[in-house]
Design a protein around this nucleic acid. Structure first.
Length: 370
DNA sequence: AAACCGGGGTT
DNA sequence: AACCCAGGTTT
């Protein structure tokens, strides 16, 4: 694409956006600081997650880890505990790894170039640009989801933003539009515009400082952008999970040591997700526990299935209530008996909380309340 | 229930 | 360059 806006027009557009931001931009906690640590934390939490969800996590996280030194000294398990429910737990592992690297190898200071910043775990080109622009005042562009949508509309971009050509075009125009003055405020301003005015559905074009410059608005249907590729349907998978309970209410949980899938979180024993839509026989569940963990249980009792959607597939879990009779998990399994409602030190993913909640709904212990 | 967002890592 | 990723919010 040729450059649709000349240099003078780019300066004008940036000015219009900054004026709106100064007058109407949201007051968010991470906009009240230039501490790179706080800006970095906000950018990581805001990846794949909305502002409203992030706010309480951001406050709680900073209360426990007010500085990058505190975070570097903390244990991963506690970091994951504070991240519980926020999803995409790899972000939390990367956050912790980067904190340790910055503190131990870089004297506690973030690198000040895009290349070096982008080598840190969990930080890519857009997040690196955001930190450098907002915390260090450098002339760097960002390209997150909000910015992609705004620019795709202003340019009436014909191709999907995630294609190679689409990305190259958007990065190029994002750089051209970023002003030399106040690049950090500009970054916040364009994200704010995307989140509050140039929204996915029903954009508020009459309130937009760029109306009159926007090719999508001129075409009459801004919602037609960004152009999307057809999405592949998500497969549905099935698994069982065994809730081995002791008389005192504790449940057997195992740590997920796998580096990529919910790594560091805890889960009940079960089989791998598969394609069979039929729950296993109780006898198969009992055998799985006996052979895999050396644990004997009374006849497993099926509970209501739990449905959960992940990024790339739907999952149905068949929970089984399994009263413990004998046996302890082998040392190598890392298994522990946990009072999961009380224990704040054991990070659990949302799925496993939903599965464990079935224990309070089981036919064996009917609800007492009306 | 369905649509859809989103950036970094890996190969 | 293509593919992958163990969620959540909005409509």
């Amino acid at each position: 694409m040729e450059n649709p806006f000349g240099e003078a027009t780019c300066r004008q557009l940036a000015g219009l956006l900054l004026t709106r931001y100064d007058r109407e931009g949201r007051d968010l906690p991470w906009r009240r600081t230039r501490d790179p640590y706080r800006i970095w934390l906000a950018e990581i939490m805001l990846q794949q997650t909305g502002v409203k969800t992030v706010l309480p996590y951001y406050a709680g996280f900073l209360e426990r880890f007010p500085t990058i030194q505190a975070l570097a000294e903390g244990e991963l398990e506690e970091v994951l505990s504070l991240w519980q429910g926020l999803g995409y737990y790899r972000r939390a592992r990367h956050l912790h790894a980067t904190a340790r690297h910055v503190v131990r190898e870089l004297g506690g200071r973030f690198p000040d170039t895009c290349e070096a910043m982008g080598r840190l775990p969990g930080i890519g080109p857009s997040t690196a640009g955001a930190i450098l622009a907002i915390a260090f005042g450098q002339h760097q562009a960002i390209l997150d989801g909000n910015v992609k949508r705004v620019l795709a509309r202003v340019l009436a971009l014909a191709m999907p933003p995630d294609t190679t050509v689409g990305k190259r075009t958007l990065w190029e125009q994002a750089r051209r539009l970023t002003p030399r003055e106040r690049p950090g405020d500009y970054a916040q301003a364009i994200m704010d515009l995307g989140a509050t005015v140039c929204t996915l559905r029903q954009p508020l074009c009459p309130s937009c400082p760029w109306q009159g410059y926007c090719a999508a608005q001129r075409e009459g249907c801004p919602e037609a952008y960004p152009v999307r590729l057809a999405q592949a349907p998500k497969p549905r998978k099935y698994q069982f999970q065994a809730l081995v309970t002791r008389p005192d209410g504790r449940v057997l949980l195992l740590p997920k040591r796998d580096a990529t899938l919910l790594g560091g979180l805890w889960h009940p024993p079960g089989d791998e997700p598969g394609l069979s839509a039929v729950p296993p026989e109780a006898e198969a569940v009992r055998r799985h526990l006996a052979e895999g963990l050396g644990i004997q249980v009374a006849t497993p009792c099926p509970l209501d299935a739990v449905a959960h959607t992940f990024t790339h597939f739907h999952l149905t879990v068949f929970p089984f209530l399994c009263p413990w009779r004998a046996g302890e998990p082998p040392e190598a399994s890392g298994g522990r008996w946990i009072d999961w409602r009380q224990d704040r030190r054991t990070p659990l993913a949302t799925l496993h909380r939903k599965v464990l909640a079935r224990l309070s709904e089981s036919p064996a212990t009917p609800a007492l309340e009306a």
